[in-house]
Amino acid sequence: MWKYIVKRILMLIPVMLGTILIVFFIMDRSEVDPAKVILGDAATEETVAELREELGLNDPFFVRYGRYVLDLVQGDMGESYTYRTPVSDQILARLPNTLLLASTAVLLSVVIGIPLGVVAAKKQYSAFDNISMVVCLFGSAAPTFWLGLVLVLLFSQMIPIFPASSMGRGFWGVLRSLVLPSFTIAISSIATVARTTRASMLEVIRQDYVDTARAKGTPESKITSRHMLRNALIPVITSVGLNFGVLLGGSVLTETVFAWPGIGRYVIEAIKTQDIPSVLGCVVALSIMFTVVNLLVDILYAFADPRIKAQYKQGRKKR
């Protein structure tokens, strides 16, 4: 198991190198000249050329790429053109906010989605099942930015109980301002989690071991939690893990709509101001988060299903 985890962490290195290469390449192909961005429109040709030389922008592509990666390993993501401060500081200041938003959304999708799916499956074809699944279909179909605006309209304009934008102060302030943005990104994943849970529960409900459990005289509530849900959870974990990635991406939109001081809003700002080191830094940070979450999901599998754990162990034996 540990060997597997270490192996997976080592695998992150080529994945990250590849991601950085692609983003670096795209930024390089853009028409933006960093020297011009830094110096502004008033700069003369000479000063621009001087700065280009100083920044090493005239070096070949792979030299610059190698330099960026080497700096990155030492925690240096370059300096933001707009803020004139290290990008890593900017990201570190905003990362907790994005993580807070995304993990609240994940928590919501698990806490609401799973019970919803379980009840819908246990009462298949009932009114509850039909209505909740139609609502879920709507939830996963509705676009995030639209949902965000509708929620603001409803709960901030018509019934002003939650703030429409920015992050509040203090525990309660943060919590209050967290409600609308987190629900905005969570709704589609609540719907996905509920639908996955329902489908997976329906599969499990028909299994023979459920009858075995009933034949032992196990109470129905225990059958649901211990025998059905634990088996049904594996596809749900996948769905939650994949959703985390979607949430991180979705946070770009939501953070803009709600003026949430996170990485998502930072990256949009950086793109607008052609702040290349910031854009690169954000993409790198987001992709590290995404791959780490994927790793966590794979480790969680092992705890949910002993057969998968056994596979990891077998892999070790073969070596």
Binding site: Q207, D208, Y209, D211, T212, A213, R214, A215, K216, G217, T218, R226, H227, R230, N231, A304, D305, P306, R307
Partner: peptide, 29 residues
């Protein structure tokens, strides 16, 4: 069920819960 009347099922491959240890499954009864 279980205490007075118990049942042995047809297919042992599918009648045990894959995510619980066999000890747990007997102890549950």
């Amino acid at each position: 069920r279980g205490a007075h009347i118990a049942m042995i099922f047809q297919d042992p491959m599918t009648s045990l819960n894959p995510v619980l240890t066999v000890g747990d499954q007997i102890a549950e009864a």
